[in-house]
């Protein structure tokens, strides 16, 4: 690019529009979190269900192992990837607050599990729904928005069914809300990278 190249008015407009578009298209690959947590919750819910119906001791053990392990792995991933981020958009700035609200609400519900009883998982699904709906909207990515709506419906259904069935509904909800949209998000990111 020339140092002091004289610009015509049309060229100015072209520069502005191209650069604004470039900055907006700089999607970050967030698909890891959706795919990773989707699978972690899916595996925990399914194994919890299997242990319950086979009447094994400690049926909730998968949650106790996988959730802290997931926290550590995504913490390391986030430290490695996010610190090298070259640009911060306003959307990302807002999403930082949304994710803190999401994690705080999730933690509150999990801590209150003894009080909430069978209402715990429906509450968890409600919080998932908010997260998926908001993050999908912020990234203008419809599969996540749809995933959020599915999680809302799943939450309502969960209020009416027993604990065993709730586990199956949760695994379906994360499959459609996190895992499938997560893979679609990865494809969108790869397309964007290839299109450069």
């Amino acid at each position: 690019m020339e140092n002091e190249k004289a610009l015509t008015e049309n060229e100015s407009l072209a520069v502005i529009s191209k650069m604004i578009k470039t900055a907006q298209q700089n999607f970050k690959d967030d698909s890891f979190y959706y795919i990773f947590w989707g699978w972690m919750v899916f595996i925990a819910a399914i194994t919890n269900y299997v242990l319950l119906i086979t009447q094994t001791n400690n049926p909730t053990l998968p949650w106790a192992i996988l959730m802290p392990l997931g926290g550590i792995i995504s913490g390391i991933y986030s430290y490695k990837h996010e610190r090298n981020q070259k640009v911060t958009t306003y959307t990302e700035e807002i999403m930082k607050y949304v994710i803190i609200a999401f994690l705080a609400s999730l933690l509150t519900v999990l801590v209150m599990m003894p009080k909430l009883g069978v209402a715990t998982y429906p509450m968890v699904l409600l919080i998932y729904a908010i997260w998926l709906f908001v993050s999908g909207g912020a990234m203008k990515f419809m599969p996540l928005v749809v995933g959020g709506i599915i999680n809302w419906v799943a939450a309502v259904v969960c209020f009416y069914v027993n604990y065993e069935l709730q586990l199956l509904i949760i695994s379906l909800a994360v499959l459609t809300g996190y895992i499938i949209p997560g893979h679609m998000l990865k494809i969108r990111y790869q397309k964007q990278q290839n299109g450069k």
Partner: peptide, 25 residues
Amino acid sequence: SQLRLSVISLLVGVKEAEFSFLKEK
């Protein structure tokens, strides 16, 4: 000026950007 206008246009849409991002874009 083409380069200064490019830099400002890039920064208008984001909260902050590193030098390497501006150089690349």
